[in-house]
């Protein structure tokens, strides 16, 4: 519940960012560089004299949106392929499983980097790249789940009333994978936050002047010796966000477990 509250709060912050930022996030103050926290700048300023709190608030939206784009792309690819492979088996299943295995063998950040290298750096390209890397993860859990569900008697029952395979996939199999899918999505959302932060660190993630927490953290690293505390805040913010996704996922997993027990499934 705390985790859900935190996510809701961040969403609110992202929506009303323009009204609650104490300063213009891009306003430079070349006389007040790397200032320590004060009444006017609660978290201090960065190496261009920009207010760090305002930059974090400004970056909340992108930081939240980016992992959702990535997970969206991952689900868009992984869900249908996983469902078709798990239900129909055969050569399509064999092939898509091999492709997923191959994608799995490449560390996520590398794959995202390769895609950025080819398509050029932009926030959208990056998150689509991360989405491609999430697809095999979605594929795997969905395929495994469908393999189990297609054995269920209610699928046989659907076949005997004359339901087509597509109808069975949509009406019977898809709703029954929903729980697993949602849990997997929360895991991936957390990963997405971390990967966005890492890519932004290389300057190939979210592109300036747009700020994400990863971008802010990257910027602060350049002033590490002058103002070490600058690097701490965005890191804490990112960690809290990932934790929130993790706990929400755990919560959903538990409540789904209960439902399944009640349904005798």
């Amino acid at each position: 519940m705390v985790a859900l509250g935190l996510l809701a709060l961040l969403l609110l912050v992202a929506l009303v960012a323009d009204w609650i930022m104490p300063h213009d996030p891009n306003a430079q103050d070349l006389l007040g560089q790397n200032a320590p926290p004060s009444a006017t700048h609660p978290l201090g300023t960065d190496d261009l004299g920009r207010d760090i709190l305002s930059r974090l608030i400004d970056g909340t939206g992108v930081t939240l949106l980016a992992p959702f784009i990535a997970v969206g792309v991952g689900v868009l690819i992984g869900l249908p392929v996983g469902m078709l492979a798990g239900y129909f088996r055969g050569i399509f299943d064999w092939l898509s499983t091999r492709v997923a295995d191959a994608l799995f063998a490449v560390p996520g950040i590398l794959l995202a980097m390769a895609i950025v290298a080819i398509r050029g750096p932009s926030t959208v390209n990056v998150m689509i790249g991360v989405g491609v890397l999430f697809a095999p993860r979605v594929f795997r859990v969905i395929r495994a789940e469908v393999l189990a569900i297609r054995q269920a008697t209610f699928v046989d029952a659907a076949r005997t009333i004359g339901a087509s395979p597509m109808r069975i996939l949509r009406n019977n199999i898809l709703p029954n994978t929903a729980g697993t899918l949602i849990v997997q999505c929360t895991v991936l959302l957390g990963m997405g936050v971390l990967i966005e932060a890492a890519l932004s660190f290389f300057g190939i993630g979210v592109q300036p002047p747009q700020a994400s927490w990863g971008v802010v953290l990257r910027r602060s690293f350049d002033s590490l010796t002058e103002a070490p505390m600058q690097s701490i805040y965005p890191g804490i913010a990112i960690t809290l966000l990932v934790l929130a996704f993790m706990y929400v996922g755990d919560g959903i997993r538990e409540s789904i477990g209960k439902e399944h027990r009640e349904a005798g499934w």
Binding site: L194, A197, F201, L217, L224, S231, P234, G235, T239, L243
Partner: peptide, 16 residues
């Protein structure tokens, strides 16, 4: 915490 924190932020904390 170790699973949730970004690797490179942990490294920055180590450096500090």
């Amino acid at each position: 915490l170790g699973l949730a924190a970004p690797t490179y932020w942990i490294a920055i904390v180590f450096i500090i």
